[in-house]
Design a protein around this nucleic acid. Structure first.
Lengths: 352, 352
DNA sequence: GTTAGCACTCACCACTAAAGAGTGCTAACA
DNA sequence: TGTTAGCACTCTTTAGTGGTGAGTGCTAAC
């Protein structure tokens, strides 16, 4: 022990090439097996030129430096959060990303429609691809402007109100209308409404209709319904929309074979605030939170890999993967990159 | 043992009032504790007038009759599937239902829009209310007829295509259109399309457009998009739509503290075919499948309580709750009843 | 600087023993 | 005849025990 300590001091805290190779080997092995990895394993599977004793010395140094730790005295070593951090950082700067672009695209390009749907199918595709929990966040947009309002006739007495905003947010709702309004009448109303309301924010539309409804007695009903819907949309788009998918993938990993841990994990996913707390603020590139960086006790041995995508109006959304800290970061980052690009494409299109 | 057997034979298999009370007490206790219940528990908590020895005799008879069983010789008793069956049947005929109508309605009447959304929010409301897994099934509808097609202008070069069918199914999608089509032009096209296609089934629309697109050269693009969408809708409405919510509520129950069991359960929920296999065919009233009645090995100790709701066009959907056989059936049935009625209301409205 | 060898540690497994809960049965009682 | 008390018995659960094996740290030799 004294020797190990002195070695580390002698050598400083510089991690040389061989140490790095060994560390990466430990991480790699642990990511796949979830079992503490011993010196012999590394010597046999990764660094065949070196004996287990040599590896042992190096591993001892790595432990001294804080990259490895032992669950108990005589088990193999497990990578620390610091090790994952190093690993991820090298990945991010390097660019040794697994390219699975094709299978990713294929996975969710056949289902496209409204933004909400896109968000959800992206989450589900992402979770199926990674076998981890996927999160897609569509941030709140307070400044959405209405670009079109239209009433589409349904059966007598009811119509479908469609509202389109410049952010590409589309919402529709069935409302009651006077029975003697035919298709043309509804279209006429739609044109008037659109011309008066286009360019205003949802909030303004809600307010304007309160005034407008005084003039046109017969259409009060319609105006009321639109006002309701606008305020509802304002509320919805003014709130962060989060889609979570594959949350129970966590059960596939042995670190969560304890049901209580699994439940704690799952309950975080259900709590919007907690979820938001560790999703990064709009930021370019990849963000990787490891262990304590997540800021939640329940997530202390988890990691989250996130990236951003662009939606209309200069806003950016966040898409990410959550799983045990032991994660194949390279693969995940590769997949996320593609998904992020795909989302930017889809959202951009809807928004344009 | 010989005595117990002879008693049962002597008395025939009639279950008298006291036996029934004891049986219900056992079920009740087990539902809440998930621990085999012993004679002393019943004697203390439920039938204070009787001693544990008496209860023991009765329980022995009940075991003989197949209503109770012992996990092992010297544990308490656990209700059998037959007991749950009896319990449920008496509930269904009697009508001792927990009335929680208000809280149920309150729960999801503020989010209404398209049928898909309704189905999903119903599922999520139901699972939150019951703390079990909720399933809402919207059965396939092969004969939906288009009642209205409308193009709503978005930014230049794109429009929102809205399709409404008589079943109240609404779908919309952004499509590309020629840049020189303004709002009026789009409306004119919509009118023509509606007049020609209204009343046809989705399948027919898909086919018709293949022919129609030959005539109007300029609008080929639009027709193609509509044809695509119609066939997509035909595919979607021609498939059973299932919303599952609260699947990991199962982790709250000790019978699933074994992760492998939990995973097996969850994987059934992800397999549409298996899920459909135990959801009842359209049938009035409540259907309760208990244990082996589920027909799946993975679900052998589960139960499903289902009821039906009406959607447009004489079709009915199914809504249900899945959980361990040990379930507070009274409460569940009460909640389901209200949710079913609410769904009928919402779907009916959308459909009318 | 690397390697072989050896003593040592500690989780894990199988096994055993004791404790506790609950039953079945018998005999006595109302 | 139904109910109850008492007791022997069963069987799970829990704690404790020893053996096994993986893996380490250290030392000495190369």
């Amino acid at each position: 022990m004294a020797d190990g300590r002195s070695r580390a001091v002698q050598k400083g805290h510089e991690i040389d090439d061989r140490k790095l190779r060994i560390l990466l080997a430990v991480i790699d092995d642990y990511v796949h097996t979830a079992v503490p990895v011993g010196s012999r394993t590394i010597s046999r599977k990764y660094e065949t030129a070196l004996s287990s004793a040599t590896i042992r010395n190096e591993m001892s140094d790595l432990e001294e430096m804080g990259y490895l730790e032992q669950p108990h005295v005589s088990a193999g070593r497990v990578p620390t959060m610091k090790a994952y951090r190093l690993y991820v950082d090298s990945l991010l700067s390097g660019g040794t990303r697994a390219a699975e672009a094709d299978s990713v695209r294929e996975f969710f390009f056949d289902r496209v429609s409204q933004m909400q749907d896109v968000v959800e199918s992206a989450a589900s595709a992402l979770s199926e691809l990674t076998r981890y929990t996927a999160v897609v966040l569509m941030p709140k947009q307070l400044d959405l402007k209405v670009s079109c309002l239209q009433l589409v006739p349904m059966n007598r007495g009811s119509a479908l109100l469609v509202v389109i905003t410049d952010g590409g947010v589309i919402r529709n709702q069935v409302i009651r209308v006077s029975e003697n309004l035919d298709s043309d009448a509804l279209y006429a109303i739609s044109k008037v409404l659109t011309s008066r309301l286009a360019g205003r924010t949802l909030q303004q539309v809600t307010e304007a209709l309160a005034i407008y409804s005084r003039y046109s007695g017969a259409d009060q009903e319609v105006c009321g319904a639109i006002a309701d819907m606008a305020s509802q949309m304002a509320r919805q788009t003014g709130t962060d929309t989060i889609a979570v998918s594959g949350s129970h993938n966590i059960l596939n990993y042995p670190e969560y074979s304890d049901v209580d841990k699994a439940r704690a994990f799952l309950s975080v996913l259900e709590t919007k605030d907690k979820l938001l707390s560790f999703l990064p603020e709009e930021r370019e590139g990849f963000t990787v939170r490891i262990g304590p960086e997540m800021g939640l006790r329940e997530m202390a041995d988890c990691a989250a890999v996130c990236t951003s995508y662009r939606i209309g109006g200069g806003h950016t959304g966040t898409v990410g993967v959550i799983g045990p800290a032991r994660m194949p970061y390279g693969r995940i980052i590769g997949i996320l990159e593609t998904v992020g690009e795909a989302l930017t494409g889809l959202m951009g299109e809807a928004a344009r």
